[in-house]
Design a protein around this nucleic acid. Structure first.
Length: 263
DNA sequence: TAACTTGTTTAAAC
DNA sequence: TGTTTAAACAAGTT
């Protein structure tokens, strides 16, 4: 479930591993990614993130990685499993795209059309590292009536928030996930603006490493997650119990005391 | 075993 | 038209 924080960390890792290095060959393991067999190799000039994508930029083309549910990039070792494609570097190192459920994608896009390619995805605005204040959030969700938590998942407004961060941000700002987005006051948006950034920073701090712990089998969610996956546990800021409900077909976690809903 | 998990796209509904 | 919701899809885990 890589979202903004995890994609950011994996992008930083790819940057450290690959920039300035020559990709000597690309080894396709999963035939769904056979289009990578003919992808150009060469020096990696830049690695950057947009929304939940990592972009590995060579001279003429970029490889655009989307992790979906279970994708990860790792510096391969003997423990690497579920590798669908690997990039062999001149240094001898191998970068693997591990993806057990195979939902992830790696597109090869010519640099000259990359901007257009992203434009077709109709992606919204970034919320990190640029700090967005309450007025910005209020403005970006103008005209959105759906419940707050559902609205946060709309990638055409704001990118990077997935089902985990959506619950986390609501909790951190003391807002109910069920409130109509259009009914939030400026004061509430202001609280949201203060809270979300701190949550991202805290999660980045805890998760930043060569491997994202919670993405691996059997691993526990980070302590930095305050409500996600914690149904039945006690709320970190009061004595109430964290609840889990279905909202628009997705799991939503919240504390009814800290995030009261009065309709 | 079948339900559950997710981000994204498409279709349908409002 | 713009917005919202539901369904569908991928495949492995429980």
């Amino acid at each position: 479930m890589p979202e903004l924080c995890e994609v950011q960390i994996m992008t930083e890792n790819l940057e450290r591993w690959m920039v300035g290095q020559r990709v000597r060959s690309i080894e396709v393991v999963d035939d769904r990614l056979s289009h990578l067999k003919t992808a150009p190799t060469g020096i990696v000039n830049r690695v950057w993130r947009r929304a939940k994508y990592s972009i590995v930029e060579l001279d003429d083309v970029s490889m655009v990685i989307h992790y979906r549910m279970t994708g990860q990039v790792v510096l391969e070792d003997e423990n690497s499993r579920f590798v669908r494609v690997r990039w062999k570097l001149e240094s001898g190192q191998s970068i693997g795209f591990m993806d057990p459920r195979k939902f992830g994608t790696v597109d090869v896009i010519a640099n000259e059309v990359l901007e257009q390619w992203f434009k077709s995805k109709k992606l919204g605005q970034e919320i990190w590292p640029t700090v967005r204040d309450g007025a910005w959030w209020e403005n970006v969700y103008t005209g959105v009536k759906s419940p707050l938590k559902t609205a946060l998942l709309k990638q055409d407004r704001v990118v990077g928030i997935g089902n985990i961060l959506a619950s986390e941000f609501c909790f951190a700002s003391g807002l109910t996930p069920f409130q109509a987005t259009s009914s939030l006051t400026s004061e509430e948006w202001s609280r949201f603006g203060d809270a979300y950034y701190k949550r991202i920073e805290a999660i980045l701090l805890e998760e930043r490493s060569e491997k994202i712990g919670f993405l691996f089998e059997g691993a526990k969610n980070p302590d930095a997650f305050q409500v996600y996956g914690r149904q039945g546990e006690s709320c970190p800021s009061c004595s109430d119990v964290i609840q889990k409900v279905q909202q628009s077909g997705r799991a939503t976690y919240f504390c009814a005391s800290c995030q009261p809903f009065e309709s």
